[in-house]
Design a protein around this nucleic acid. Sequence first.
DNA 1: GACATGACGATTT
DNA 2: GAAATCGCCATGT
Length: 119
Amino acid sequence: MPKRKTEKSRENFFADVFDIVRLVPKGRVTTYGAIAACLGLKSGARMVGWAMNASHGEKNVPAHRVVNRSGLLTGRHHFETPTAMEERLKKEGIKVTKNQVADFDRLFWDPAEKIFGKK
DNA sequence: GACATGACGATTT
DNA sequence: GAAATCGCCATGT
């Protein structure tokens, strides 16, 4: 287990990521980079992905709505089943083709919009 | 304490 | 235009 020092940072980071992902409207998708940018990280996209890994314990975190900047479902293999991600997205009305979100540009939801407008 | 890895992104060659 | 490389911060070994 990490020391308290990292624990604090980790908690803040994960909390922010989970909160943002949770705020993603149904039928919308966002990207790791967008979330990272909201947290103030220039390129913390990797960390966001790491946080998503921890999201396995957070049932209320729709990690399936988080894709890479290309709209590609890069993390589908980390789900319970390789198809769970696209299946869920399709269920919410999002079309997925070849592990990629259709009309990704249109469905893209920018957390900065909410965070910035809210704060 | 150092090295290697990770569901990414942007920049440079 | 495509490929290779660096950067980012945290985690695991």
